[in-house]
Each structure stands twice: as structure tokens, then as C-alpha cells.
């Protein structure tokens, strides 16, 4: 009996420590994204598509500046970070709308705890990625409303070196992996794109009263994270509601149906990035996200116009697990 007692006493703190450890890895990954300057090449694979890409990610007193561009296929890129309008003009694509400083939110402890109820987080072994030692972290969903992840976090800095998104049978549906990475890129500069690219039409932020929408029953763990209003086509306004379970995100776009909109009730299933669209009370509502279709359709069906509760509560970004 005494021996059993002893074993238990020793075991318990260890278990707690382990759980903390798993959360720590997630937090470190997030922090690394907003605190470390790095540059590197990575490969992005999704289904049959394979692209080599380069990232330059610099953090200075003004915040995060990042350029991600393709090394093969059509020359495309994204730019983040403010204060460098010349750079934006030179590259075009992803320009103007990205000049607002992109927030790298940190995982709050509550959010991590909530993740624990929705995903099983466990530590795998140590692996080697792009000449760096990395801790493997498995994030498995508890239900069919979200996809799972396998993450490789660099031992020293926590930077995510490789990530795989998995379906319910454990098959990889999308992944990226660094082939080489320099974790000490501070003081460098962001290269300017050589090819002039035409910017796609982007939504411009706009202020004004948000349409009132009521959100009914949505998949467990998902909560309204933010609401924004944008200027859409033809003087229309677009309201953008963002739902998140702390890891997966689902966007809802709402804009009034205009004359000439032909087919407004549609479900677009691209297989992996899914989108649903339909009309709700003369508004075109489009739901999209890297989640199973069931999640989208449940959120779509939960939306009702006229409620005040959801919008009043969440015009400011709120903690997604607050409810």
C-alpha cells in the first residue's frame, strides 16, 4: 500500500508537467512567429500541387515584415508589414490591403486550455528538419468538425519548421516543410519583387455599423472571434465574421444581394478549402474555411439576421473561448 502511495505521488506532478509541456510547445511556436527574424526556403504540397517558396521574415521595432513568394510556377507573393509603401508598390500583389500591421496574436492560456478539450495534444519524438532538431507535436481533433495537425517545432527557438494538416483517417491533405532556414536573419532587408504583378481585387476596410446577425448553434468549440466591415463591389458593404476554435478558422462573408447577381444559392466544395454560399434574407452569405463541410453548413444554418447579441459582443475582437 505504501509503495502504491509513493508511486502515485511521484506520478501526478509528472503528468501535470507533461501537459504543461505540450501547451508550452504551442505557445513557443506562436511566439517564435512574432519575435524571431528568419529567412528560408520551404516546399508547399497539397494534393498534386508542389511549390517551392521562399520566406523572409523580419521583426524590428515597427513590427513584423514578411514576404512570401513562389520560386516556381506563376510568380506570386504576399507581403506583410507597414511603413514601406515603396516596397508595396513594387510588388503589387498583396499590396495595399496588407499595409495594416498584421497582428500576430498570441495564444492566451485560456485558449490553450480550450484547445485541450477539442484536440488531443501529444508530444511525438525529436526529428530533424532542414538541419535543425525539432520536437514533433501531434494535434488530433476529438470530433469530425475540424482537421488535425502534426507540427515540427525547432528545439531552440520554437519556430514551426514543418506542419501537416490531416484528415480524420490521418492522411496528410496539406503540408509545408522548410528545406533550409536561417534563424538569425535580423538586420537584413526584404528583397523587392522583380516581376510586376497585378493586384487582385481586395476588400478594403471600412467603418460603419455592422449588420446585426444572430448566431445559433455552431460546432463545439467554435466562437465568434471578430467582425469587420469591408467595401465590396458596386458600393456594397461586406461584413466579415471570423469564427475560430483556437486553431481552425471559418470566415462568414455577408453582403446584400444586388440586382444582377445571378446564382446566389450555391455550395462550392473545393475538396479541402470548402465554401458554401446562399441567401439569407436578401443577403448573400458565404462561409469558407479549412474545415470539413459539415462545420461550414452548421455555421451557415445557424445564421439569422436581426439579433443584437452577437454583434454587440464582438465588434471588438474577443477571446474565442469566452463562451
Amino acid at each position: 500500500m505504501n509503495r502504491i502511495w509513493l508511486a502515485l505521488v511521484c506520478l501526478l506532478p509528472l503528468e501535470t508537467a507533461l501537459a504543461q509541456d505540450q501547451s508550452d510547445w504551442l505557445r513557443r511556436m506562436e511566439q517564435a512567429a512574432s519575435t524571431i527574424s528568419y529567412r528560408g526556403d520551404f516546399v508547399f504540397v497539397r494534393g498534386d500541387l508542389m511549390r517551392h517558396m521562399r520566406v523572409v521574415h523580419l521583426v524590428d521595432s515597427e513590427g513584423v515584415h514578411q514576404r512570401v513568394f513562389s520560386l516556381d510556377g506563376p510568380p506570386n507573393e504576399t507581403l506583410l508589414g507597414g511603413g514601406q509603401p515603396g516596397l508595396m508598390a513594387a510588388s503589387g500583389y498583396g499590396g495595399s490591403a496588407e499595409t495594416e500591421n498584421l497582428p500576430f496574436s498570441t495564444l492566451l492560456p485560456q485558449r490553450l486550455q480550450a484547445l485541450n478539450g477539442l484536440y488531443q495534444i501529444s508530444l511525438g519524438g525529436i526529428d530533424r528538419v532542414a538541419e535543425h532538431q525539432a520536437q514533433v507535436v501531434n494535434v488530433e481533433p476529438e470530433d469530425g468538425y475540424r482537421f488535425g495537425f502534426r507540427l515540427w517545432s525547432e528545439l531552440g527557438s520554437g519556430l514551426l519548421l514543418r506542419a501537416q494538416m490531416l484528415n480524420s483517417t490521418g492522411q496528410v491533405i496539406e503540408q509545408f516543410s522548410f528545406s533550409s532556414v536561417d534563424l538569425d536573419a535580423a538586420g537584413g532587408s526584404i528583397p523587392v519583387a522583380e516581376v510586376q504583378l497585378s493586384p487582385p481585387q481586395l476588400l478594403a476596410p471600412e467603418t460603419g455599423h455592422l449588420t446585426n446577425w444572430r448566431v445559433g448553434k455552431i460546432p463545439p468549440g467554435f466562437a465568434l472571434q471578430s467582425m469587420r466591415r469591408y467595401a465590396g463591389q458596386r458600393q456594397a458593404v461586406v461584413d466579415h465574421l471570423l469564427f475560430s476554435d483556437g486553431l481552425a478558422t471559418v470566415s462568414v462573408f455577408i453582403e446584400p444581394v444586388q440586382d444582377g447577381d445571378e446564382f446566389s444559392n450555391q455550395s462550392v466544395n473545393t475538396g479541402i478549402v470548402n465554401a458554401l454560399t446562399g441567401t439569407v434574407s436578401d443577403n448573400q452569405v458565404t462561409v469558407m474555411g479549412e474545415v470539413p463541410v459539415a462545420t461550414l453548413s452548421m455555421i451557415f444554418n445557424s445564421l439569422q439576421p436581426g439579433g443584437l447579441a452577437a454583434s454587440a459582443e464582438s465588434t471588438a475582437p474577443s477571446d474565442p473561448v469566452g463562451q
Partner: peptide, 19 residues
């Protein structure tokens, strides 16, 4: 119950009972 929740993602690659 878990099976029901995961069923949206069941693709029929394996037999249902195996899954």
C-alpha cells in the same frame, strides 16, 4: 458518438467496420 462525429470525413477507403 465519436464515429458519428467523424463520419463527415469517412471516405470509404476502408470498410466501415474497420474504420
Amino acid at each position: 458518438i465519436k464515429a458519428y462525429r467523424a463520419l463527415p470525413n469517412f471516405r470509404g477507403d476502408s470498410a466501415f467496420y474497420t474504420w
